[in-house]
Amino acid sequence: MQGFEQFVRLRYTELLHTAYLLTGSVVAAEDLVQTCLLKIMPRFDRIADPMPYLRRAMVNQRTSWWRALRRELLAADPPERAGPDPARDLADRTALVAELARLPERMRAVLVLRYWEDLSEAETAEILGCSVGTPKKR
C-alpha cells in the first residue's frame, strides 16, 4: 500500500491534467482520476508500469461516461500545473479547450495522449487499442 500512496502523491497532478484534457471539466477530471485509481489500487503491486495502465483506464472510463452521458463537459480553465505550461505558451487556453471540445472523442484522446502526454504513436495506439496507423491519421 505504501508504493501506491507514494505513486499517487508523485503522479496525481500529472494524472489530473491528462484527465482534464480528456474530460474538459475539473470536477469530471477529479472523478475520472479517483475512479481509475480506486480500480487499480487492489492490484497496484502487480502492475509493472502504472502510468500507461492508468492512461488507458482513463481513456476507457471517459469513453464509457461519454456514451452514458452523451454530452460534453468542457470548462474554460484547466487546473494550474506545477512548472512551465507549454500549452499556455503555444495557444490561448480557452481556444485550445474550445477546439478540443469540437473533436470526436477518439480524436481528442489521440491529441491528448500524443501531444500533451508526449507519447509515441505506438504507445498511443496501445492505450487506445488500435493499430499504430490510426493515431497517424487523426
Rank of each mutant, 00 (worst) to 15 (best):
A122K: 05
T134P: 02
R106H: 13
E123V: 01
E105D: 09
G133Q: 07
A76R: 14
D89L: 15
L74A: 08
L128H: 02
A82P: 06
A101R: 11
D77I: 11
D77S: 10
D85S: 05
A122R: 05
A125L: 01
L119D: 07
R106C: 13
R93T: 13
L74R: 08
W116A: 06
R102A: 04
R106L: 14
S131E: 11
L103Y: 09
A87Y: 12
V97Q: 15
P79S: 02
I127G: 01
A91G: 12
L113P: 01
V112E: 02
A98D: 05
R93Y: 11
P135F: 13
R102G: 05
R108M: 07
P104Y: 10
D85K: 03
E117Y: 08
R88P: 02
T124M: 02
P78A: 01
I127F: 02
I127E: 00
A98H: 04
A98I: 06
A122T: 10
I127T: 03
L128R: 00
P79Y: 04
R108A: 07
L90R: 15
E80R: 10
L119S: 08
K136F: 04
V112C: 00
R88G: 03
P135V: 12
P79T: 05
E105G: 06
L96C: 12
P104E: 11
L74W: 09
L74F: 09
A87Q: 13
K136D: 04
R102K: 04
A98T: 06
G133P: 08
E117F: 09
R106T: 14
T124C: 00
